[in-house]
């Protein structure tokens, strides 16, 4: 089961082929904050599978520590540090790695993003932090088929000396885990589930 994180409601978007389910982040479950106090205020209103978008390292770190937050969403200016990635593993917060940020940027900015993503993938594999390879699309034209998304990140990982097979394997495993977390009522956490 492959899950994708989207920022729009897809209607007949053939570019999303290969994804079985998708989570749409809208005003209800998407929190955009630039300060920690703003984050705390907005989290009170948020419902469902909550994702946080912030360009501030402190806000992202604070969000990871909050029980209500499920995912740290990806965009061009996201700032994450070493400790946040390590902490996300302990708190079971999903770190999104999206493709759309590369489509929205060009030249120098894109090359910086590629370098950042290489380092991020290295750390995600090192700590085995839950992560998801997604399209992160804002509109239908920013979406891409699942195979294409996985192939892109596999190429990026291979090019940087990262174990690309392990990366894809973990991404698939996390995708299935998120699907079960959201869809299966018997699932509590890894290794703990209600058996009838």
């Amino acid at each position: 089961m492959f899950v994708d994180f989207l920022r729009f409601q897809p209607e007949e978007c053939e570019l999303l082929e290969g994804f079985d389910f998708f989570v749409v982040f809208n005003s209800k479950n998407l929190v955009r904050a630039s300060t920690t106090s703003e984050l705390q205020k907005q989290l009170k209103k948020a419902k469902g599978f909550v994702g946080v978008m912030s360009d501030n390292v402190k806000v992202n770190r604070e969000a990871i520590m909050r029980r209500k937050v499920n995912a740290i969403l990806d965009f061009e200016n996201r700032a994450l540090d070493y400790t946040s990635i390590k902490m996300a593993k302990e708190k079971d917060v999903v770190i999104e790695v999206s493709l759309a940020k590369f489509l929205r940027t060009k030249s120098f900015k894109r090359s910086k993003l590629l370098e950042e993503t290489r380092l991020l993938l290295k750390l995600l594999l090192k700590f085995e932090t839950p992560f998801l390879l997604t399209t992160g699309a804002n509109c239908c034209l920013e979406a891409r088929p699942r195979k294409q998304v996985y192939r892109f990140f596999s190429f990026l990982a291979k090019d940087s000396g990262i174990d690309s097979e392990k990366l894809i394997k973990l991404a698939k495993k996390n995708s299935y885990r998120i699907y079960r977390m959201l869809n299966d009522e018997n699932y509590i956490m890894d290794g703990v589930e209600v058996l009838k």
Partner: peptide, 14 residues
Amino acid sequence: SFKSFNGKEINTER
């Protein structure tokens, strides 16, 4: 022959 997308949205508000 190429397939079309028929994914479903997950309702996260339970």
